[in-house]
Design a protein around this nucleic acid. Structure first.
Length: 602
RNA sequence: GCGCCCGUAGAGGAGUCCGGUCGUCCUCACCUCCCUGUCAAGGAGGAGAUCGCGGGAUCGAAGCCCGUCGGGCGCGCCA
């Protein structure tokens, strides 16, 4: 029997590591009381630490003092137990526990720390509400399920460092206090005490710095780095997050893919025990949008979108015909296998869902043996119905959904309908991990709101060709998609100052603005910049997917609530007057909400 | 900035649509007692709640109306 990794001056082993090989060993364990089962005479304690749970037996005859002390134990008391490991009697093993073949016969018991009754039980079938779990996160994290998540997160970091190291990447740290950039998300600002009235920005990503590391000749850089964006959080998006940031010199798109693909295959292999094929499929942006209506499709199931415009060319159905007559009007549809079983209520919900995503409406058809059942059936010709079924590859028992609208809205709506139906109809296979790269996105997007062109990816992405016409230019940029989630994205960068300048001009930046905001970058490029490119991977999201969780909160040790508050520490909190004075900051109280008088009945 | 859902003993839930019978119930935890092989132990008994908060209509509110706070999900936003 080898010495335990967990041996300290206070204990010989961790609770969770005792097995049959330790039988007869004299051991000392420390841990938390997970439960007590008192039979009047013999008393059992389940003792928990990070490594697991082991049963302790207290016999009144063998150790009267320890047995008496055990009567007083309550949940979550911290104790130290001395005793010897015994094989459990026949028929009394517990195969649900890793330690279930053995138990510790206690000789003495020492209470190291008494615990108040916890506000919620420490067990895996968690029932407590989110706010309570966050307020008592240190109790929530005692649960084995949470320990498992932290372990997965740690493994992913360890695998990542091992992989990047093996390919010659250096982990270089970049500053947390940096400068605000004009494009992109809202910055978190940190006031400077030394320069009153000026602010650092917390990094949205180390984008410019990693490019400067390439100019600095560092060739291959990576960093597992915290980034911050002051934008509304979602279940799969927090405003504090961790990314694997990568940049490499003398590299093109395929070189970046060749670094990332084996890493992401390895996560799935080592965490989930599933082999995924490399290289991952590459799907051009236009094709992806046409087939799935989104740039992050879930490829674990079919239901691809069909273009129905040819089918309804010259249709007598005015709702469709009028859409086709508009400039970017589209009619697209999909067939859901077995969707014919949905109730009228569920179909109505689908229509509402599509409308909620901005579509004018949704037309459904249930495919029956000789005909289709649909609210608009009488408006459609036989040729149109047959053409639709052919185009969507629908057969009897399927549900066909059609959206006629402006192309963008039709895609958004059908993407939602597709995901919704896959979920409802149980079409999502468990244990499958379908990666894909999306490539060749547009270099620029038109922003209606700002009335100007904005960078689709970011302003440092290289154009795919010499074409810089904002209406047609493509970028050498890419996203990695996994099971309907974007898990990372990057690009080959512009390394020639004159090209970078032209892109800034298309984005509407004036020469003085370019100089003010990006002068340092352009100056660096004048001193010999290698062609380079890279990628940033969202680590929280990949951990979430590997851990089978539905929210990033569930894979973060100390997350914030959706409102941005931290119920554990009470952050954010007001600063005291002295601090504010030192920073030269005066707080303007938020305007009082308009008090509407209560409306009573007449 | 907006929309939707939730808030009832320490935890989770039922009750709210359709006001009076409700501070009524269930599971777990807690306290007391019984019990020498349980493992989500078991048995008997007990305590514990201004129904998130404020206001309103009503003879009467956990329930209806308005506001507000907290949590969640989504839209906008997230180069």
């Amino acid at each position: 029997m080898s010495d335990s990794l967990y041996r300290t001056t206070m204990r010989t082993h961790a609770c969770g590591e005792l097995t049959a090989e330790h039988v007869d060993a004299a051991v000392v364990l420390c841990g938390w009381v997970a439960s007590r089962r008192d039979h009047g005479g013999v008393t059992f304690i389940d003792l928990r630490d990070r490594e697991g749970i082991v049963q302790i037996v207290f016999h009144p005859e063998d150790a009267a003092d320890a047995h008496a002390a055990a009567q007083r134990l309550g949940a979550e008391d911290v104790v130290r137990v001395t005793g010897s490991v015994r094989a459990r009697p026949d028929g009394m093993t517990n195969l649900q526990l890793r330690t279930g073949e053995v138990e510790l016969a206690a000789a003495s018991l020492e209470i190291l720390s008494e615990a108040d009754t916890p506000p919620f039980p420490i067990e895996d079938r968690i029932e407590a509400g989110e706010e309570l779990r966050l307020r008592y996160r240190y109790l929530d994290l005692r649960r084995q399920e949470m320990t498992e998540v932290l372990r997965i997160r740690h493994s992913i970091n360890a695998i990542t460092r091992d992989h990047m190291e093996s390919l010659g990447f250096l982990e270089v740290e970049t500053p947390m206090l940096t400068r605000s950039t004009p494009e992109g998300a809202r910055d978190f600002l940190v006031p400077s005490r030394v320069w009153p009235g000026t602010f650092y920005a917390l990094p949205q990503s180390p984008q410019q710095l990693k490019q400067l590391l390439m100019v600095a000749g560092q060739d291959r850089y990576y960093q597992i780095v915290r980034c911050l964006r002051d934008e509304a959080p979602r279940a799969d998006r927090s405003f504090e997050f961790t990314q694997l940031d990568v940049e490499m010199s003398f590299a093109d798109q395929e070189d970046v893919f060749a670094v990332i693909e084996p890493l992401y295959a390895r996560y799935v292999r080592e965490i989930r025990g599933v082999e995924v094929e490399t290289p991952f499929p590459r799907i051009p942006y236009d094709e992806m949008l046409a087939r799935f209506g989104t740039d992050k499709p879930d490829l674990r199931y079919g239901m691809e979108l069909a273009d129905l415009a040819p089918v309804f060319d010259g249709t007598g159905f005015n709702a469709f015909g009028s859409v086709l007559a508009t400039e970017d009007g589209a009619i697209k549809g999909l067939a859901a296998p077995g969707g014919g079983q949905l109730s009228r209520k569920e179909l109505d919900q689908l229509v509402q869902d599509a409308k909620g995503r901005g579509a004018a409406g949704l037309v459904w058809m249930v495919v029956e043996a000789e005909s289709v059942r649909s609210p608009v059936e009488k408006h459609l010709s036989k040729e149109e119905v047959d053409g639709t079924l052919r185009a969507t590859d629908a057969s009897e028992g399927d549900l066909v959904c059609i959206v006629a609208d402006q192309i963008g809205r039709a895609n958004v709506a059908l993407d939602g309908v597709r995901r919704n139906l896959a979920d409802r109809l149980g079409l999502i296979p468990e244990g499958e991990w379908r990666y894909a790269w999306y490539t060749d996105p547009p270099l620029f997007d038109w922003s209606e709101e700002e009335g100007k062109w904005v960078a689709n990816h970011h302003p440092f992405s290289a154009p795919a060709t010499d074409d810089l016409d904002p209406k047609t230019a493509k970028a050498k940029a890419y996203d990695l998609v996994l099971n309907g989630f974007e898990v990372g994205g990057g690009s080959i960068r512009i390394h020639r100052p004159e090209v970078q300048r032209k892109v800034f001009e298309v984005l509407g930046l004036s020469q003085p603005e370019i100089e003010e905001k990006f002068g340092h970058l352009l100056r660096a490029f004048r001193y010999g910049a290698p062609p380079h490119g890279g990628i940033a991977m969202g680590m929280d999201r990949i951990v979430m997917l590997m851990a089978g969780k539905e929210a990033i909160r569930d894979v973060t040790a100390f997350p914030k609530a959706q409102s941005g508050s931290d119920p554990l520490t009470g952050a954010p909190a007001p600063a005291d007057d002295g601090q504010l004075r030192e920073l030269g900051i005066q707080v303007i109280p938020p305007p009082a909400k308009e008090q509407r008088p209560p409306i009573g009945r007449e």
